[in-house]
Design a protein around this nucleic acid. Structure first.
Length: 679
RNA sequence: GCCGGGAUAGCUCAGCUGGUUAGAGCGUCGGAAUCAUAAUCCGUAGGUCGGGGGUUCAAGUCCCUCUCCCGGUACCA
């Protein structure tokens, strides 16, 4: 192993406008923590960097809507998330933040470096300018009428109704979202990063990469194939890193460009704290350092295309050695997305379960090759039958035995029996296998192999039956228990990357320090005959069904769309009566019907349903004239979530049959009161 | 609609460049043991690898097609 090699490990910078949830942890934070802990056990030089990403329109917007300063927003999430990581034992060397001065300086230096090399392109474009605020308005700060659908609250970047991509200049009657005043059109200059210029270099660089995960490679190839385009790297915004040039007041560096530089700033900050202000260069400017970015798949393009291109442009820094991106972890079949608000937040789960139980459950099901699923039931099963049953039980039965039969002291071990040799050798060979697994980022399999050691230890205990030999051959019994105690110590090393808290507890139970907590000591004897053991404790208390049921219930209540497989093993596409009953079908009479202006297919219908009236929009004007429909009795889905089509409210859907370009509306045979249920 | 990614034992997941009887953990069932948190150990059963077609001496693994699910995109009966 190359002794000079250093590792610079980063975890994605979480955006400071939300709380971290367990999907993030499984994707981008726990894997690097495990990796780093392993590397330290084998004695490698590693630093582990992350921090909050604290700039950008979303945060400035949030500060405006909540009527507090951006600083208050980012403080709230930065400190909460910092604590969340700590509670889970995710130990960054530094968890910095991009609002720090050193980051602003570093990002500006980076910008100037490539600006001075004439790499950046300047483009002047027309943009909306607010006189009242004396600044240009970023896309999201403009609101107005959508030119496509007529919706009056369209945003500058897109219309939330019809989904059209817009530019603020296209809006009819644009207004500032902040002050409401009417902006002027002025010319504004922006910088662009010519990504396309790096296409070939990136391509060559990526092609030379060995051992990258297939999903990452595929994703990059897709981008390269589509061709890389210039990307704006400045924005008209207050909240961010200022463009360090004269004449660019009110402009900041676009957050996508500035945020990843945060990895560099954070490294600088770390070594300033350590009183070695130049040492960061040993990592960022040292060809022997391996830079590894742990991220979720949504971040692949930034870490394997854009940031490397930036680093190439700058020239003084190393490029990533690997970008082991994970997929997503879902919950109950739903994506753990912060925008949907249905994730399990770290701050909530750590109140209920110990960090190692959470770490174990997530690790055993990391989304390494595809999206994976988290369930509370799974957490319970993992705790009760694996952690408690296999690992906790082995430590406990060994220590209790020593306590009861050997006065809580470590018995002697004279000569290793063949069985002792076998178990120690097994541990050693497992540790070798684990080396490969860790280095190829296969943590799930690594955990499995780690647990195999605990299984083997239990088997050793069973096979050697110390409860029998204690009566017939106390010396032999003592050596068996001694071996088991040594195995406990080895297990403390083996599980350390995954279960650091438990690892430490085992050391305390064995009454030893962490001086022998080294990878090379796996399968070796390190304890001292005659020393007393510490106080025993139950490592993993059982988790009761009732506790899990409560959490499952909460999840279901909190999220109505959760797919609850009450009837399992139904053939695909088959639904239950309950499923069907969710749909409320009603008879309705068409009382008004007009085309939606500018639309090709849409008709707006006013319906009478019992005593109420409602409006729906239907894409049937190619088949029916408005007049044909008035007075007809039709069937509508009455409990559909309301939506807007081209800016027109639609609160339901009519039923129609369609085949090969023919479309016929479902009508009622004879007369019946509107509002009647259809089933 | 289009572009990606999926669909493998009851559950959660492995299966790299195609190669002997398709794997693991947990769960099930049976047995052994009783030191231990009713925790362990051994053994058993379980899959026509989403459906259909094709290439090949040989396909879960390659090609075509269909169905369903998940992302991204799109004026959605």
């Amino acid at each position: 192993m190359n002794k000079n090699r250093k590792y610079l490990v980063t975890a994605a910078l979480p955006y400071a406008n939300n709380f971290i949830h367990i999907g993030h942890i499984a994707g981008a934070y726990l894997p690097p923590d495990i990796f780093v802990r392993y590397k330290r056990l084998i004695g490698e030089d590693v630093i582990f960097i992350s921090g909050s990403d604290e700039h950008g329109t979303a945060i400035e917007m949030a500060s405006i809507t909540e009527k507090i300063s951006p600083r208050e927003i980012i403080d709230r999430y930065h400190f909460a998330n910092q604590k969340a990581f700590k509670d889970l034992g995710i130990n960054f060397d530094i968890y910095s933040r991009t609002s720090n001065k050193i980051h602003h300086e570093t990002a500006q230096e980076f910008f100037l470096n490539i600006f001075n090399k004439n790499i950046l392109i300047e483009k002047t474009e027309k943009q909306l300018f607010s006189e009242k605020e004396n600044r240009f308005l970023a896309d999201r700060f403009v609101t107005g009428t959508c030119p496509v659908c007529g919706y009056e609250e369209a945003r500058g970047d897109e219309c939330p109704n019809c989904g059209s991509n817009l530019s603020p200049l296209e809006l009819i009657n644009p207004r500032s979202k902040i002050t409401g005043d009417i902006p002027l059109v002025k010319e504004s200059t922006h910088f662009y990063f010519p990504l396309g210029d790096f296409q070939n270099d990136l391509s060559d660089w990526l092609n030379g990469k060995k051992g990258w995960k297939q999903n990452v490679i595929n994703y990059c190839k897709g981008w390269l194939k589509a061709g890389l385009r210039d990307r704006a790297i400045s924005r008209d915004l207050d909240w961010g890193v200022k463009i360090p040039l004269k004449g660019y007041d009110g402009k900041v560096i676009y957050v996508w460009f500035e945020a990843p530089i945060g990895y560099i700033s954070a490294t600088k900050e770390l070594f300033i704290e350590r009183n070695e202000p130049e040492k960061w260069k040993d990592y960022w400017q040292n060809k022997d350092t391996k830079l590894i970015h742990f991220i979720g798949k949504d971040n692949i393009v930034f870490h394997s295309i854009i940031f490397p291109a930036m680093l190439m442009a700058h020239g003084d820094y190393i490029l990533p050695d690997n970008v082991p991106a994970n997929e997503f972890m879902n919950i109950g079949g739903e994506k753990l997305s912060k925008s949907k608000g249905n994730g399990i937040l770290v701050k909530d789960i750590t109140e209920k379960f110990s960090p190692d139980v959470i770490r174990y459950t997530l690790s055993s099901n990391f989304p390494e090759t595809k999206d994976s699923e988290f369930t509370w039931k799974d957490l319970q099963v993992k705790n009760n039958s694996e952690l408690a049953g296999i690992l906790g039980n082995f430590v406990n039965r060994t220590v209790v035995f020593a306590k009861n039969k050997f006065d809580n002291k470590i018995p002697d071990l004279n000569k290793l029996s063949p069985a002792d040799e076998v178990i120690f050798n097994y541990f050693k060979s497992q540790s070798g296998k684990l080396d490969e697994l860790y280095d190829s980022f296969r943590f799930r399999e690594a955990l499995h192999n780690t647990m195999d050691c605990a299984r083997a230890a239990n088997k050793y205990f069973n096979d050697n039956e110390p409860w029998k030999s204690v009566k017939t051959d106390p010396e032999k019994c003592g050596s068996v228990i001694r071996v088991c105690l040594e195995l406990c110590h080895s297990i403390a090393i083996l599980i350390n990357p995954f279960l650091p808290f438990t690892s430490e507890k085992i050391l305390r139970i064995l009454n030893v320090t962490d001086k022998d907590l080294k990878w090379q000591n796996i399968g070796k004897t390190v304890l001292v005959t005659g020393n007393s053991l510490g106080e025993n404790m139950i490592l993993f208390p059982q988790i009761e069904d009732s506790e899990i049921q409560k959490l499952e219930q909460q999840l279901e209540d909190g999220e109505s769309v959760k797919s609850a497989p009450t009837h399992k093993a139904l053939p695909q596409g088959i639904i239950t009566v309950e499923d069907f009953k969710k749909v409320s079908l009603k008879v309705a009479r068409v009382i008004e019907c007009v085309p939606v202006p500018k639309s090709k297919k849409l008709l707006k219908l006013k319906l009478k349903i019992g005593d109420s009236e409602k409006q729906i929009v239907s894409g049937i004007s190619e088949y029916y004239k408005p007049d044909e429909l008035i007075g007809k009795l039709i069937v509508v889905v009455n409990n559909l979530v309301p939506s807007k089509l081209m800016g027109v409210d639609s609160d339901g859907m009519l039923l129609a049959a369609k085949l090969n370009g023919e479309l016929r509306i479902v009508t009622i045979d004879g007369d019946i009161e509107t509002g009647a249920d259809v089933n």
